[in-house]
Design a protein around this nucleic acid. Structure first.
Lengths: 190, 190
DNA sequence: TCCAATTTCTAGCGCTGCTAGATACAAGAG
DNA sequence: CTCTTGTATCTAGCAGCGCTAGAAATTGGA
């Protein structure tokens, strides 16, 4: 039985190596540079091995995205925990969200721009996604008024996402970034 | 000289045909289905002809995006013109923006998701983009207060864009769409 | 009618994600 | 220790992509 468990352990280790290689390569050179051949070379196995772990390249990207959702949630939790008052909490959480997207562009792309449908159906993304979403919800709760918290949170999240994506694709001048964020925070914390 | 002008006319016509074919194919089957080989077949010429009109596939997509910016601007102008009061204008323009993105997803993708950098530098996009942006600015002007109009408009635009993209990628439940839009309008028209 | 210039096409390069079939390897039976 | 069976891995290749060099066809003027 022990050789069996050893093999399973090695297999799991290799799977982590694939995801890690994809993530690092995407961060360093963008997702265009992440090809199945390069990934295979990186983990020192042949190409078809990837397909014994994942259904295809999309599934590998989805695995990277899952890591991203967990880290984003953690970043938001940290930001809210250290905020002085409710209004400052909104500002801090918004800043943390934007900072996450700016510092890990490839990760953010995997989570939102690419990997269109795979992880949202049933896997463990909902857990970490829900963690992040709940954190956003608690942050804006004091400012919802008599409206629906979930709807309000989704709208705030969308606005943050829009700021991030438009700026990352150079549709917005980088210079006004902080002021736009301030406007957004102001509008959602009154 | 007349044969010369005829040739130029035919050439311009063919260029329009390429852009039209790309647009229709993208609308019908998505941008993944728009390959240079299919485009060539559609206009009944061989593949390299495309490259005598455009630098590459990205440039063709950029041309489609240019059309999109013009149409979006027109849609926003129409929406604002028919609004009763300033607050209603914000709601109508926001609704028009979202409707544009939903009804022409491939066009919206070409404008914002794909075609990353080509048309923003110097071509005629800025004209139509500026038209649309100016229309948004005039719509929200009554609600800016003592802040910066351009910054305020950019933030509002980003929020709309975020709503559109997150919903189109199924990150938001379609059901709450109208209510989220209402929250956004409320926050930016007070 | 022939030549020169332009336009268009055929053929192909290097790349992609992915997979079928061959091969090496490990585990259990005699 | 040998042989067989089943699994893990690799080699080789498919069909498709964007793009381009060089051949072929077409056109306009001498």
């Amino acid at each position: 039985m022990s050789t069996q468990t050893r093999r399973e352990r090695e297999r799991a280790e290799r799977e982590r190596a694939i995801v890690a290689a994809a993530r690092e390569l995407a961060l360093a050179e963008g997702w265009d540079a992440v090809t199945t051949r390069r990934l295979a070379a990186e983990i020192e196995y042949s190409q078809p091995v990837l397909y014994s772990h994942f259904k295809g390249k999309d599934a590998i990207m989805a695995a990277v995205a899952v890591e991203g959702f967990a880290e984003l949630a953690t970043a938001l939790v940290t930001a809210r925990a250290s905020a002085a008052d409710p209004r400052q909490a909104v500002a801090d959480v918004a800043a943390a969200y934007v900072a996450f997207a700016e510092q890990r562009p490839a990760l953010y792309d995997a989570m939102f721009t690419l990997a269109v449908d795979l992880p949202f159906a049933s896997s463990d993304v909902p857990t970490d996604l829900a963690r992040g979403f709940a954190e956003l919800a608690e942050t804006v709760r004091p400012f919802v008024g008599d409206g629906d918290l979930e709807i309000f949170t989704e709208t705030f999240w969308s606005a943050l996402h829009g700021l991030v994506t438009l700026m990352r694709s150079d549709r917005l001048r980088r210079e006004g970034h902080a002021r736009r964020l301030a406007v957004l925070v102001d509008r959602f914390s009154r």
